[in-house]
Amino acid sequence: MSDRPGVVLRREPARGCLNLRGNPRDAGFRNAVAAVTGVELPVESCTWGPAGDAAVYWLGPDEWLLVLPAGREADVERRLREALAGSFSVVDTSGTHCFLNLSGPARGYVLQKSSPYDFHPRNFPAGRCVQTVFAKASALVAANPDGSFDLVVRRSYADYVRDWIADAEEEYGFARG
C-alpha cells in the first residue's frame, strides 16, 4: 500500500443553512429569492450551484437548501420573509447539518460501500446532488468541480457517519482533514 492516502475526509466548519420552500414556477418567488440571496434557485432536479460564498441545493420539487457563511442565516431569513409573498416557508436549519468533504483517489469506493446510489461520473458529474441512503443513515451528497464530494449529514448521525467512513476506507489508507 502506498503512503499516499486513498481517501481524505475533512470536516467542514458549521455553516448557515436555510430550508426554503415555494413554487419554482412562480417567477415572483424565484426573483425574490435571487434578489435577497444573489442565488438562482436550481429548478432542475438533483442539481446544485455555487453562488459566491453561498450554495443552493435542490432537495425536492419545491424545496431547496441554502447554505451561507456561518452567522448570515438570521439576517437572510429575515430579509426573505420580508421579500417573499404567497406560499413559502423559510426555516433555519443551521444546527441540523454537518458538512464533510471526501476526496482522494479511492473516494468513490467509500460511496460505493455506503450507498445504493450510482455515483459513477457518467451518472453523477459535478453539479449534481442527491439525497440518498448512506450506510444506515441518510445524506445529501454533492459532486464538486474538483472531483471531491460534499456530504451533508444530520448532526445526530455525524459521529456514526464519520466512524463508518473511517472503517470503510481503512483498506485504502486515509487522512483526516
Partner: peptide, 12 residues
C-alpha cells in the same frame, strides 16, 4: 417522478 431518475428500493 420528482427526482427524475430510477433509484433503488432502499430509498423508498
Amino acid at each position: 417522478p420528482y427526482c427524475e431518475e430510477a433509484r433503488s428500493e432502499e430509498e423508498f
